Amino acid sequence: LTGIAYPVIFFSTWNTAYRKPHNFFGLMLLAQAGLMGVFTSMDALLFYFFWELALIPVYFLCSGWGGEKRIQVTFKFFIYT
């Protein structure tokens, strides 16, 4: 499902990532790689590694391309995860 959803997300956000699109799509690809590793890991250590790998780009995506309350959302994301 992740492999199907991410290309749809890329095509739907192609015109909306107007601020630094290379950074946006790079962070999205890193998040996808982390999620694919989470869902395919067979070891708890690899699961933890890929989970943390997936959280880091999501944090930067929220802080860079979030809405008008992106600072509050990023802070809550950091506290809850």
Rank of each mutant, 00 (worst) to 15 (best):
G3W: 06
A31T: 08
N15S: 11
F60Q: 11
M28F: 07
F77K: 01
S63C: 06
F50A: 01
M28C: 10
I79Y: 03
A54R: 01
L45D: 08
T16F: 10
G34H: 00
A44N: 10
T74A: 15
K69Q: 15
A31P: 01
S12D: 09
G34M: 00
A54G: 04
S41L: 07
T13E: 04
V58H: 01
A5N: 14
T74E: 01
I9A: 14
F75M: 14
L30D: 15
T81C: 02
V8S: 12
F25P: 03
R19A: 13
I9G: 04
M36A: 15
L27Y: 00
K76W: 02
L61T: 03
L53H: 02
G26S: 15
R19S: 09
G3S: 15
F11L: 15
G64A: 09
W14H: 11
Y6S: 04
L46R: 05
M42C: 07
K20D: 15
G26W: 11
L35W: 04
G64P: 04
A17E: 06
Q72S: 13
T13G: 00
N15Y: 11
T13Q: 04
I79C: 03
L46A: 14
W14I: 13
M36I: 13
F50T: 02
A17K: 06
K69V: 11
R19Y: 14
F11N: 12
G34P: 02
K20G: 08
I4D: 08
M28W: 06
Q32S: 14
G26P: 05
S63G: 14
K76N: 01
T13V: 05
R70G: 09
F10C: 01
W14P: 00
F25Y: 15
G66C: 03
V8R: 13
F49V: 14
R70P: 07
